[in-house]
Design a binder for these strands. Structure first.
Lengths: 339, 339
DNA sequence: CAAGACTGCTCAATCGATGAAGCAGAATTG
DNA sequence: CAATTCTGCTTCATCGATTGAGCAGTCTTG
């Protein structure tokens, strides 16, 4: 097997010996600034060829240790179980690579402890910059990074000690609620308050969406039913049991609702199907977030799709510009309805 | 601002000076083996406290450079746009962390070039082990890693130079096809060949699934229609245009089909809805892969859910055991139908 | 009480890449 | 032809953490 011979990895010292030159020349050639270090092109070529033959691979740990910037950019993300975060991560990796940065992403499963542990780990790996996506406590992360002199950008949920890029939650929720109210009026011939379900009452996005929800009700002259505002968390099970409780409490279930994320919608739909409570007609729904299969579930669902490419462009604009002001950039989401 | 004072990061030398001791004592205390290096617990405590006060963070680059093992484990994954890969990544991170490993994941967007570039990058970062998930060319990655003395495990798609963990594609496809054939017979009172759509004809999974598809037809005494086997790729658009072409070619569209992945299903469903060709009745579907909203699309869809926890346990068992034999482990998928 | 064992540390080399400084020899200039 | 400039390298310190080797003291033991 080749493996035995190649137990040890080839280093610039090995190449230097093989080429009959110095490690510093090899380094200069392989990291591209041999021209300004006045290495002849013959030697450069010889070293390049040897490196290829020997299957040389740079040791990034050594390289980063020596350099001032690591060119590593980190992101923490709550979950990988929906299209929104999935496309955020994919876009992030693409844009990072385009800038010659090495992206490292880690998922914290909405666990506050894991979140800061992950942030600490990223700092240990010398990230130049950290994107905190949907963090429970963005400022805690911001402080950690600040102490290490590392830049942070908050995404999806805003913080107060670093720039943030978020959706226009108020605007999106306002429009989404308007549509659901209108759909209900069209079908039932009357206006009535909707149910708001999903999300955490303490997070900025949820409270802004509730504000939009209220504003749309006010506009339509419908009084909000306070018992129908249920920010029960994001997990499907939470939404499911909130629905169950609601059904047990009162006799009439809402015929229209605002569901705060596809993941909550998963629980709501499950309950709707299992409980049989909506056997005589499905409720009109509005979902803040998009999923292709939800779009196919029927014409009773309106969706708001967050503008992920727009959000990530804003993030990298902030990074490129070097701003550290804790400004919040609002990206308008897209209200769509695919049949 | 604190930032100015803290421009430079605290190192073990700084702590050593503050504690009036040596860097080597600090290192021993902070990496936990101070006991075996006979450091007194008083000193240990003093150093620990100081480290906390100063917000010390280990420099992993330096640490990894010095050690023989990096404790970094890499994974490359084709996409983040479906539940299957999403849960693979999440499970992977969880299990890696449980073992004290640092997971780094990167998405290669089904691009063969990016795939090997990503593998090279991971090697540069000194990963101890690399999981190649759904790789276009697992053996190329295997060779790269082999040359660097790094272990590889193939996941989802098998390779020939490293252990592989994959679903029992034949068995899953056999059962799924059986069910769709049975559903069709129940509704239409007759047996007829199904459509197979999605996936790459060249990949092992797709060809095994086609084999299962054929076996189920044989079992049911139905002759496979060769013009209905369309491994057109994974992207939704590919499936969409394959359906379009099929519709343009012949008059009768299949009333039953096997769709090879949720992502292909996305295209199929889009076409079914847009084209209006199935206005008088939706086709019976079988989908190799699972998605919660697909499960809600109606009772005409059967799904096979790949056993992600089972697969990842197998992966880590291989890693823990240290085997390097290119064996293929088949994990049976779960055939389910959620109403 | 001398020999050995133990305690609690420190010293210095090392991992691999980088780049400032320096040094021969060749080429150019006044 | 001496003085300067240029070319094409090499030497060496450095980044921060790790670890084998070593070294004073103190404690034990026959």
């Amino acid at each position: 097997m080749k493996r035995a011979t190649q137990a040890k990895r080839t280093t610039i010292y090995d190449l230097a010996e093989l080429a009959g030159t110095s490690a510093s020349a090899v380094s200069a050639v392989l990291n591209g600034n041999w021209r300004k270090r006045r290495i002849s092109s013959q030697l450069a070529e010889r070293i390049t060829r040897l490196a290829e033959e020997q299957g040389y691979a740079l040791n990034m740990q050594a390289s980063v240790l020596r350099r001032e910037r690591s060119k590593i950019i980190g992101m923490i993300v709550p979950k990988y179980d929906n299209r929104y975060f999935g496309s955020i991560v994919e876009q992030f990796e693409t844009l990072a690579r385009k800038r010659g940065l090495f992206p490292i992403v880690t998922c914290t499963r909405r666990d506050p402890e894991l979140e800061i542990e992950a942030a600490r780990a990223m700092l240990s790996y010398q990230v130049d910059c950290l994107i905190a996506t949907g963090a429970t406590d963005p400022d805690r992360i911001g402080d950690l990074c600040g102490a290490a002199g590392v830049r942070t950008v908050n995404l999806d949920l805003p913080g107060s000690c670093a720039p943030s890029v978020i959706s226009d939650n108020f605007g999106g929720a306002l429009e989404l609620t308007r549509r659901v109210l209108a759909n209900c009026e069209k079908e039932f011939g009357e206006r009535f308050p909707l149910l708001f379900i999903g999300g955490r009452g303490t997070d900025h996005n949820t409270s802004e969406r509730i504000r939009g929800f209220r504003a749309a009700h006010a506009e339509a002259n419908v009084e909000v039913d306070e018992t129908l505002i249920l920010p029960c968390g994001y997990a499907p099970e939470k939404a499911e049991s909130a629905m169950q409780q609601l059904a047990e409490g009162g006799p009439a279930l809402p015929r229209g609702m605002f569901v705060n994320s596809t993941i909550s919608l998963e629980g709501v739909m499950r309950w709707v199907r299992r409980s049989g409570h909506y056997a005589k007609g499905v409720p009109h729904l509005g979902c803040f977030d998009w999923d292709p299969f939800v779009a196919m579930l029927g014409d009773h669902i309106e969706m708001v799709r967050q503008d992920v490419p727009g959000m990530l462009h804003a993030v990298f604009e902030i990074i490129d510009s070097g701003t550290a002001e804790p400004k919040v950039v609002h990206i308008p989401p897209i209200v769509e309805k695919i049949g």
